[in-house]
Amino acid sequence: MTLTTTATPSAPTNKLGFTKQDYVGSKSTLCAGCGHDSITAQIINAAFESNIEGYRVAKYSGIGCSSKTPAYFLNQGWGFNSVHGRMPSIATGASLANRNLINIGVSGDGDSMSIGMGQFVHAVRRNIPMIYIIEDNGVYGLTKGQFSATADQGSHLKNGAVNDLPPIDPCTLAIELGCGFVARCFSGNPKQLNTILKAAFAYKGTVVLDIISPCVTFNNHDASTRSYKHVKDHDFPLHDLGFIQYSEVEDVEIPAGQTEVVTFPDGSKVAIKAIHEDYDPTDRFGAMKAIHESMAKGEFLTGLLYINPTHPPLPEVLNLVDEPLASLGESQLKPSAAVLDEIMQSLM
């Protein structure tokens, strides 16, 4: 397969010499205005700006409108659109097979918070090296608008049906499970999403991004709590964020004063300027408390909710060799005839 587009001579290039067009995918087949497409656009921007080597990218998804989107970005990378709710295990196996891959998983609120809840929980617990994006619209888009488990209690479907059950929040759940990078974004706030995605690319373990992403076809009506209007009115960004990739740290000055700086093991830095009182994203319990309080008020607290830059990912915990397991050859894997002989002797 060839890249869908080629660079025009004038298009700006990144440090690898790629234009933004080199990060796109096939044409989206989602409804016009779907929040998921805005997220795709920011993944493309962030990958371009972060100088991501496309061939190292592996994209995984389950099933849903959201899970279709990996086909719409980064055609230079490999994709695996698997089965409903099981994206995390696909990311687990491939990331273990080749630890050089840059792993992006895209899922939906149905895909991750219902059928795939078990896999979500365990992937986070194992700290699989991946960006785990939940494109959260409160409904099952692809099966035509049934409630998902993130729908707010008392919210209405277009046909009038009311959701009687409390929602599951992916972010507090992820923090509870020890996730080292948890953020909530809104597809309608591209600047914030872009910065968080760039920081996510620099992070070594599981990044959970719950991105509120309105479904214009089934969940954008006036009585919805996931409509563009409702989310815009209730979005409380926590901070102004800046992200500086390790390669640029020298050139960028971080303003002194109000700004808190979190440094990643590779030297990259996230600069956080608080808007929302004195929110501290390195304080796990404080973060939980603030999120619960805001949810009780019906707000969406957005931004970097929790960060722990030094949480070891699974390949490190398993003490795997540095070379990708998939590249190991027979000489490194097959024990000698003497070994078999020794084992046979022990069984005699």
Partner: peptide, 14 residues
């Protein structure tokens, strides 16, 4: 999840 790991690891060359 075991099946997912096996098939994706195989897909990735392990």
């Amino acid at each position: 999840a075991s099946a997912g790991v096996v098939l994706s690891a195989g897909w990735a060359g392990a």
